[in-house]
Nucleic acid binder design. Sequence first.
DNA 1: TTATCCGATGCATTTTTTGCACCGATTGTG
DNA 2: CACAATCGGTGCAAAAAATGCATCGGATAA
Lengths: 304, 304
Amino acid sequence: MRYLRTFELIEAVVRAGSIRKAAEDTNLTASALNRRIQGFEQEFGWPIFERLPRGMRLNPAGELLMQHIRLQRTDLARVQSQVADLSGERRGHISIACSQALLPYFLPKQIAIYRAEHPGVTFSINVRDRAQAERDLASYSSDLALVFEPVHLVEFDVIYALPQKVHALFQNGSPLAEKPDLRLRDCLNHPLVLPAPAYGVRHLLELGATSIGRTLTPTVETESFDLIRHYVTQENAVGFQIPIGLKPQQDAGFGHRPLAERDVRPGQLLLGQMKGRVLPVASSKFGQQLVAALEGLNGTWHTS
Amino acid sequence: MRYLRTFELIEAVVRAGSIRKAAEDTNLTASALNRRIQGFEQEFGWPIFERLPRGMRLNPAGELLMQHIRLQRTDLARVQSQVADLSGERRGHISIACSQALLPYFLPKQIAIYRAEHPGVTFSINVRDRAQAERDLASYSSDLALVFEPVHLVEFDVIYALPQKVHALFQNGSPLAEKPDLRLRDCLNHPLVLPAPAYGVRHLLELGATSIGRTLTPTVETESFDLIRHYVTQENAVGFQIPIGLKPQQDAGFGHRPLAERDVRPGQLLLGQMKGRVLPVASSKFGQQLVAALEGLNGTWHTS
DNA sequence: TTATCCGATGCATTTTTTGCACCGATTGTG
DNA sequence: CACAATCGGTGCAAAAAATGCATCGGATAA
C-alpha cells in the first residue's frame, strides 16, 4: 500500500533507532528519509521523535501515533479479508498467540484442517506466556489467543473456556501409575521437572503444594515443555503438563495421568480475542472452528 | 494530511457520484482523479466502484472500505486530540448529535462554558431524531449523542440518563394553568400542536392517549419545536415539549407545566456514545461536563 | 438520430521525491 | 586534548510521480 509508506518508514526508524540505520533497511537515503519524517511531523502538527545525539526515539506523541498506526494496519487487513470473503475466495492471515501445550498436536491439526478448505490463508503462531499473550492482543500483534490460565483478563474477551486438569508425567513402570488415585504428595517424593514460574501449570502446582504445607523444589526448571516431556524418560522424575499437549497413549517412553482434583485444582484453557475488536473474516472463522474442536474435547480424557 | 488525500478523493467521488463532478469539487482534472482511483483499486486488490454509464457507485467492497476510511479518520482525530492534550493545549473538534430540545438553552450554555476554558475546541451540532442519532454514532459522524428516548439502543453506550416529564405548553391565562394536577384528557379538548411521529415526545403522548382510549388528532404537526413554542402564543392551542428546552418562567407569552405521570410516563434524555469506542480527549472531557450538568438538573424542575 | 455525459488513455508538463555532497553538533577514545 | 565516528539537517540537481490536455469509445436521454 503506497499511501501507508510513511507509516512503514516511521516504524523502520522506531525499530532501527536512527534515521541512518533505518535508511539502509528501507533502501532510501538518510536525507530522503529524514525529510519524510520532518514532513510528516509538520503535517501531524507535533514532533513524534526525540532527537538524541545518538539517534531518534519516540516521544509520547509518537507513542500515541504508533497505536493509531497499528490499529490502522489491522483494520485494513480486516477489510481486505472481508472483501476477499465476499468475492468467494477466502484469503487472509491469522495470527495466534498460544501456550506451548498447543504446539505438538492441537494447533497443527486444526491449522491443517482449516487450510485444507482455505489454502489461501496463512498463519503466524507466536508462543507466548499468559501475560505476553494479552499484550499481543492489545497491540494487535495477534488476532486470537489460546492460553492457559491468563492473569489479568482485562481487555480480554473469552470466546471459549476448556477445563484442563494438571497431569503428572512419569517414566514407564513408575509406581505412580499404579495408585487408584494420584495424589500430589506422592509426586513430591520424586525429583521434579517444573515449568518456569510464569506458567499456569506451575502456578496451580504452587497453590496445591502450599495448601498441603509443602514447597516445590524443582530439580529441573525450564521454559520448554518439550524438555519436560523428554527428561522424564531419562530419570525417574515427575513432570507436569496439561492433557491437550499429550497423546492419550504415550508411546514415547513415559506415561501420564491427572492429579487428584482435591490436591491441584484444574485450570482453564482460554480462547480469546481483544475486547471489542472486530476480527478479520479468516480469524473469525478459524476461531469458530477452534471453539467446535475444543467443545469436542470437553468431557473426554483431554480434560480429565 | 497529505497521505490521506486518496481517501478524500474517494469520498469526493462517492459524494459526487461521478469522477468528472468530483474532479471539479477537488480542483483536479477528471483524468488525474480517474488514475488515482484506478491506482488505489490496483493496490487494494479489488475494484471499489461500479462503473455505470452515468457515473460511479460504490460496490460492496467499497462500502467496507468506507467503514475503514471513517474509522481511520476519527481515530487519527482522537490521537491528535490526545497529543494536543498532553502538550497542555486542549484542541480538537467535538461533534454532537442531539435533539432539538437541547438547542435553545442547554447546549449553547454548555458549549460556552467549555469554550471559555478551551478556546481551541470547535463544535459541530447536528440535529438528529432518535434513529438518525444512532446512525451518526455508528458511522463516526458524531462523537456524542444527546437524544430523547432513542429507539434501538444497540451499539449505544449510555453515559447518563436524565428523566424528563412531558410538559404541556399553553397560552397565558389558559385554564390549564389553574388545575391542581394537569391531566392529559384536559389537554385533548384543545387544538393540539404535536411533533412529528418520529419524535420521542409524540411517542410518549401516543402511548398515554391509547391507554385512556383516545387518539391524537393534531391541528398542527411539525418537525420544529420552535414552531410549537410560538404557535401556542397565537391560538389557544396546547403544545408539548420536554423541560430541558424550556425556561422555568416563560415570559414569551406562554406557560408550561408537567403532565400527570400517571397519564404520560416520563421519558429519558440519554447521553451516549458508540459502544466500545475510545473518544478523543476533547469529546471525552466535554461528555464529563455534560454529565455533571445533567446531574445538576436532576431533581430540579427541569426533570419534573 | 443526435447531443450529452460518462470513464479511459497517450503524451507533454509540472510537482514532488530522492540522492549526493556537505555542515554543525555530540560522544567516545587514545 | 585532538580525532574519529555518529548523528540529524540542508542546498541543489536528478529522478520519479502526479497532473493537465486532448481525445477516444460507449451508453443514455431527448
